[in-house]
Amino acid sequence: MNTPNEILRINDLKTKFFLEEGTVFAVDGVDISLREKETLAIVGESGSGKSVTALSILKLIQEPTGRITDGEIHYRDRNLLDLSEKEMRKIRGNEISMIFQEPMTSLNPVFTIGKQIREVYKYHQGLNKRAGNRKAAEMLDLVGIPNSEKCIHNYPFQLSGGMRQRVMIAMALACNPRILMADEPTTALDVTIQSQIIKLLMDLKKEMRTAIILITHDLGVVAQLAENVMVMYMGKAVEYGDVKSIFHNPYHPYTKGLLNSIPQINDDHDRLKIIKGIIPSPFKLPAGCKYATRCDDVMDICAKKEPAYQEKENGRKVRCWKYTEGI
């Protein structure tokens, strides 16, 4: 059951992919709590399970290769994992919607922008072509596309990357969803367009009632948009907290590593700081803490036993032996 104001509560979500080489624990026991209008950032490097977490929430994991094997996803009063495909369709794009990383390939090349936005209204509000087009144009205005009346007749290839991402945002927000999941919304765009899109998301956040799950590895974006941050590593949450605490006083060595690798403009080192090593193969995960192989503060116990995800002050959480008392 969700607490008041809590719109999404995920308990112990596990999503696995069954490949020929072995089983990948893409999401391995993640807990998430999202309040209304909250912006939660999920941070981690590629392959940490951020995107799979988002796709799991919409139950869009490609079966039979991938499957949600365990956990609960409580959205308002229902566990999404108990819903039928038909009931899920009413939620997708309507109550929970998603923006993807690649605006170049995420829009269907053979349909007009108008048709692609209109579809959302057709599926969820039963609007016809004319009413749908009018609403689509309104949405395009909202996301700052000039000449929206004309744009609905354009095809994706006629728009730039930034414009396409605006179209994706318009499409995702069309039905005024309760939760918007943005999967690396700025990664594929160049820097000036990135800041425009971030500004747009910030403005929309003020105007709409939507809660946002922002998936990114760009800590700059996190700082601008998010209230809370969850750091993921190899399918597990390793740290959670409000954005200020995470940036000023990170606990987990991985979080520290991520923050340290942001280049500082007044830094006089010649080399960028990095996290040593690479992420382990998903088929050969370390037995203990998954980060032990790359950690600067590694202890004997780290390689042997996985630390628990422990609650700290102010609702912060961390999964690290360093912060576990009585070992």
Binding site: L55, L58, L60, E85, R89, K90, I91, R92, G93, N94, S97, M98, F100, E102, T105, S106, L107, N108, P109, E119, V120, Y123, H124, M168, M171
Partner: peptide, 16 residues
């Protein structure tokens, strides 16, 4: 393709 995931995420029925 990515746009198929987009279509599913919009709530498009299987047939569509």
């Amino acid at each position: 393709q990515d746009y198929i995931t987009t279509a599913k995420a919009k709530g498009a029925p299987w047939f569509q």
